[in-house]
Computed example of a mutant assay.
Amino acid sequence: MANRLLSLSLRGIQRIQKAGVHGSRSRIGNREVVGYGFNGEPNYVDRPDFPLPAIRFKENTPDIQALREKEKGDWKKLTMEEKKALYRASFCQTFAEMKAPTGEWKSVVGLALFFVSFAMWGYMGLKLFVYKPLPESFTEERKQAQLQRMIDIGVNPVDGVASKWDYEKNAWKE
């Protein structure tokens, strides 16, 4: 019983793997697979940290095939345009183009500032329409009266408020 389940599951895995290979081949068209790639899949990604994609950027055309045959000979016979065409057939961007600033930081900062302003407006709305007013004990006069009362009754005379009060001079210790 277990052997049969194992064989069925292995057949299923093999079918999935074959389908994956077939599916990836249909995705890349007739582009040449030239390496392993950064994740082992036959895909093209421009990455400065992994500059060798698994497949070429463009599909093989008769013009590119002719240039590839000419490339096998002396490179001094190739013109600059032909060298650039060969490069662009293999890669989409140069390193300078990959590392060039895109300006994406502007949209990120703008979006962050939008959310910060939205949060501030939300806080102001809650403060104005939802929260109750602060109690009277939060006024400056009441805070001073509470502090004076704590000093008068000697709250925590060792290292608290009362320890910092000079009872003889009736002022804070220096």
Results as ranks from 00 to 15, higher is better:
residue 71 E to H: 07
residue 117 S to K: 02
residue 49 D to F: 10
residue 10 L to A: 10
residue 124 M to I: 14
residue 72 K to V: 10
residue 66 A to H: 03
residue 91 F to S: 03
residue 163 S to H: 07
residue 170 N to M: 11
residue 148 Q to F: 04
residue 43 N to E: 06
residue 47 R to V: 15
residue 15 R to V: 15
residue 6 L to C: 12
residue 170 N to Y: 03
residue 42 P to A: 06
residue 95 F to A: 15
residue 19 A to L: 08
residue 90 S to H: 07
residue 1 M to H: 10
residue 27 R to G: 03
residue 74 D to A: 13
residue 52 L to R: 08
residue 24 S to K: 00
residue 68 R to G: 09
residue 55 I to A: 00
residue 49 D to L: 13
residue 120 M to W: 06
residue 62 P to V: 04
residue 25 R to S: 12
residue 106 K to W: 01
residue 81 E to V: 15
residue 30 N to Y: 00
residue 95 F to E: 14
residue 78 L to M: 12
residue 107 S to E: 10
residue 129 F to N: 03
residue 23 G to T: 03
residue 129 F to G: 06
residue 65 Q to L: 14
residue 96 A to E: 15
residue 121 W to I: 15
residue 171 A to R: 03
residue 3 N to C: 11
residue 122 G to Y: 01
residue 165 W to A: 05
residue 112 A to G: 06
residue 60 N to M: 03
residue 75 W to Y: 11
residue 130 V to N: 01
residue 10 L to R: 06
residue 55 I to C: 02
residue 152 D to S: 09
residue 162 A to R: 00
residue 114 F to G: 08
residue 127 K to G: 06
residue 61 T to Y: 01
residue 147 L to F: 01
residue 38 F to G: 15
residue 39 N to G: 13
residue 145 A to T: 07
residue 152 D to N: 06
residue 123 Y to I: 15
residue 166 D to T: 05
residue 55 I to Y: 00
residue 60 N to S: 01
residue 81 E to N: 11
residue 115 F to I: 12
residue 55 I to N: 00
residue 77 K to E: 12
residue 166 D to G: 04
residue 11 R to V: 15
residue 121 W to K: 08
residue 96 A to I: 15
residue 113 L to V: 14
residue 174 E to M: 11
residue 17 Q to N: 13
residue 141 E to M: 09
residue 84 K to G: 06
residue 142 R to T: 14
residue 110 G to I: 07
residue 25 R to Q: 10
residue 78 L to K: 08
residue 129 F to R: 02
residue 160 G to R: 00
residue 77 K to W: 05
residue 56 R to N: 09
residue 97 E to W: 03
residue 22 H to Q: 05
residue 3 N to M: 13
residue 144 Q to E: 09
residue 92 C to M: 13
residue 100 A to N: 06
residue 46 D to E: 12
residue 121 W to H: 08
residue 59 E to L: 01
residue 52 L to T: 13
residue 36 Y to A: 10
residue 25 R to P: 08
residue 76 K to N: 14
residue 81 E to Q: 13
residue 1 M to I: 15
residue 85 A to F: 04
residue 170 N to L: 09
residue 155 V to L: 11
residue 142 R to G: 09
residue 6 L to G: 11
residue 130 V to P: 02
residue 59 E to T: 03
residue 138 F to T: 14
residue 45 V to R: 11
residue 154 G to H: 01
residue 76 K to H: 08
residue 62 P to Q: 00
residue 15 R to A: 11
residue 126 L to C: 14
residue 23 G to I: 03
residue 44 Y to P: 08
residue 43 N to W: 04
residue 19 A to T: 10
residue 99 K to T: 15
residue 102 T to K: 04
residue 117 S to G: 09
residue 22 H to F: 05
residue 151 I to Y: 00
residue 143 K to M: 08
residue 52 L to I: 14
residue 125 G to T: 12
residue 144 Q to N: 07
residue 90 S to Q: 07
residue 47 R to K: 13
residue 85 A to C: 09
residue 113 L to Y: 03
residue 24 S to Y: 02
residue 35 G to K: 01
residue 55 I to R: 00
residue 33 V to M: 05
residue 52 L to K: 09
residue 155 V to Y: 02
residue 116 V to R: 00
residue 48 P to N: 12
residue 157 P to L: 04
residue 72 K to H: 05
residue 120 M to N: 07
residue 169 K to F: 08
residue 73 G to D: 07
residue 125 G to I: 10
residue 42 P to Q: 00
residue 71 E to L: 13
residue 33 V to F: 01
residue 93 Q to N: 13
residue 42 P to C: 06
residue 174 E to W: 01
